[in-house]
């Protein structure tokens, strides 16, 4: 799908002249500079670039985990810069699902409990939560492993649990930060198949950061970053 086709649909993400810098020992360290970006709802976009190019920072800004130094970040109709910390947390819970490179599952919880975590913040009763969890784990093919803890699962299975956790609240945006970075080839393929399936079947917007060109091929659109600038 072409870039033009993507943006013809209403954008779910809109960044206008966004810069991000960190300050260390009185020095300004720019990480992103004057980024303008629109991502259409329902697209699957991958960002690539060398280490330190600003990929993860861009992902953090889009997902509301960080705030820009300058510019405006609008996601799902909200100007994230105007939201308070609490509002931002609430917004993330409702709109964003996260998939991390190292899965970030809570080790003391079972697969089902990890998936249930985001639902604890939603106005659902226990039975409804259980139904959602079962559906999400079924979707990623892990129904038989619901009571297993992360240490009892392979890397690929853990990442599938993380995917189930990301989709269980039915968010508009799925953020995947190097989702295959810690997996072997087979596990990586399974995860990428699953992301593609989610994108196709559920029309979820997926924003992925990856070093792996093979993984990036699965996206509709690939954008490159270098030295904090979007190419």
């Amino acid at each position: 799908m072409s870039e033009a086709a993507q943006v013809s649909v209403a954008p779910i993400v809109r960044l206008r002249d966004v810069s991000k810098a960190y300050f260390r020992a009185g020095m300004r360290l720019p990480v992103l500079e004057h980024v303008d970006l629109e991502i259409a709802e329902g697209s699957f976009i991958a960002f690539m670039g060398p280490s330190g190019s600003g990929k993860s920072t861009l992902l953090n800004l889009i997902s509301g985990l960080d705030r820009p130094t300058e510019g405006v970040v609008e996601v799902a109709g909200r100007d994230l810069g105007r939201l308070s910390d609490g509002e931002l947390a609430e917004w993330r819970a409702a709109n964003v699902g996260f998939i991390f490179q190292l899965y970030n599952l809570i080790p003391v919880l079972t697969a089902a409990e990890n998936v249930e975590l985001p639902l604890l913040l939603a106005p659902l009763n226990r039975a409804e939560r259980r139904r959602h969890v079962a559906a999400a784990l079924d979707l990623v093919g892990l129904s038989p492993r619901v009571h297993h803890r992360p240490t009892q699962l392979s890397g690929g299975e853990q990442q599938r649990v993380a995917i189930a956790r990301a989709i269980v609240t039915d968010p508009r945006l799925i953020i995947a930060d190097e989702p295959t970075g810690d997996l072997d080839r087979k596990g990586a393929e399974q995860v990428l198949d699953m992301l593609q399936e989610l994108h196709r079947a559920l029309r979820r917007t997926i924003v992925m950061v990856t070093h792996d060109p093979h993984a990036a091929e699965r996206a509709d659109l690939v954008r490159h970053l270098e030295k904090g600038r979007l190419l």
């Binding site: 997902s63 985990l65 910390d85 609490g86 947390a89 609430e90 993330r92 819970a93 409702a94 996260f98 991390f100 190292l102 970030n104 809570i106 080790p107 975590l117 985001p118 913040l121 956790r165």
Partner: peptide, 14 residues
């Protein structure tokens, strides 16, 4: 720390 940050990312408040 990572788990607490993960919870915060998922929408848990301070």
């Amino acid at each position: 720390t990572v788990d607490l940050a993960t919870l915060r990312a998922l929408g848990f408040r301070r």
